[in-house]
């Protein structure tokens, strides 16, 4: 009996190790430990074993059973491992490129706009939006632009024919002329008319001037403007905002300075210069980056805010100009050509 058991184990060892797949394994398992299996048959012979030999024989049978089970487990593990291995193809070459055009990219104007909006959101400015088709009132009158100001000329501003109607662009007076906004300041007016102070908005958006397209001019371009209205707002607050914006954007070594200037809707008004020598292609010590000032009392009066109570500041700049400065781009037309070799540089 003992010899039979030993032979059984030895045979199982050889046979199981050679099994190629699961069906053959199942068949082999049945041949060994199934109801009609060889080991099962031997165990059934226990009754014929003399009583005094039974403990030893029982032990032997159990050991054999355990041994066979181990062999079965090992064989199953081997087959399973083989099955998983079969699911894999040959080893990959990790240096081959992934097919498809990915990854997607954000346009550099979006990247710069969103960065500015994030910086401004940290100090309480949320993004406002308004129509690109505007009327003379929102684009000029409300911003203190004299009726015969050159900016209103058909030479400089795109107008629509008197027959054109825009169903969702409100006019202050019936028959007012529609035009394409020349700046995003019209959003400030609409926001002030819609709500009550205090106000803190940033309005990025597309603007239009009747201009020849060249390396630095474009018929449409993008601006970003901030408006802050509250009580006791000062020139110093305005300077603090500009310092904060550009230090956040360009690093703590960045300096800003104000130069007195003139805009119809702010008083006093300033142009903002930036000193950021670390930027690419910046050769001058100071570069002009935008305009700002304290909201003119006249503008407040026009939107029904009492200028004795409310004060505020506004700041505006060109997004293309900022992006050109940040990335060292020297031709504004690249933003509108969308050559993939351009777009893929900024992601």
């Amino acid at each position: 009996m003992q010899a039979t058991l030993t032979a059984l184990v030895a045979k199982a060892q050889t046979d199981l190790a050679a099994l190629p797949n699961r069906p053959e394994f199942e068949a082999a398992k049945a041949r060994l430990v199934g109801p009609n299996g060889e080991l099962t048959a031997l165990m059934k012979q226990m009754g014929t074993v003399p009583k005094e030999q039974r403990p030893a024989m029982g032990k032997l049978i159990n050991e054999t059973k355990a041994r066979i089970q181990d062999l079965l487990d090992a064989a199953l593990r081997r087959i399973e491992a083989g099955e998983l291995q079969a699911q894999l193809g040959p080893a990959v070459d990790p240096t081959l490129p992934a097919p498809g055009g990915g990854p997607g990219t954000y346009h550099p104007l979006t990247l710069v706009r969103e960065e500015m909006c994030r910086i401004l959101r940290k100090v309480g400015f949320t993004v406002a939006d308004g129509p690109e088709v505007e009327t003379e009132y929102y684009c000029f009158d409300a911003l203190n632009t004299p009726a015969d100001h050159p900016a209103r000329d058909t030479q400089d501003t795109f107008y629509f024919p008197d027959t054109a109607h825009f169903g969702n662009v409100s006019r202050k007076t019936p028959g007012e002329k529609y035009l394409l906004r020349t700046h995003t300041s019209s959003v400030q007016i609409r926001t002030m008319l819609k709500g009550a102070p205090p106000i803190r908005i940033v309005s990025p958006g597309r603007t239009y001037r009747r201009d020849t397209t060249d390396a630095t001019h474009s018929a449409n371009f993008h601006q970003l403007e901030c408006l802050y209205v509250d009580k006791n707002v000062t020139v110093r607050d305005l300077k603090a905002l500009l310092d904060y914006i550009f230090a956040s954007l360009l690093g703590p070594d960045t300096k800003t300075r104000f130069r007195p200037h003139y805009f119809g809707y702010t008083e006093p008004s300033f142009e903002v210069d930036l000193s950021a020598r670390h930027l690419p292609k910046v050769k001058k010590e100071w570069i002009e980056i935008g305009g700002c000032g304290m909201v003119d009392p006249q503008v407040f009066a026009g939107v029904g805010y009492d200028p004795e109570i409310w004060s505020g500041y506004a700041f505006g700049m060109g997004l293309e100009r900022l992006a050109m400065l940040l990335y060292g781009i020297d031709d504004i037309r690249y933003f509108y050509q969308n050559d993939l070799r351009f777009l893929q540089q900024f992601a």
């Binding site: 498809g100 055009g101 997607g104 346009h107 795109f158 933003f335 509108y336």
Partner: peptide, 14 residues
């Protein structure tokens, strides 16, 4: 769209 491998473009309005 950028997450689905699109390249964002900016074209003229006119």
């Amino acid at each position: 769209l950028v997450g689905h491998d699109f390249h964002e473009c900016v074209n003229y309005t006119l």
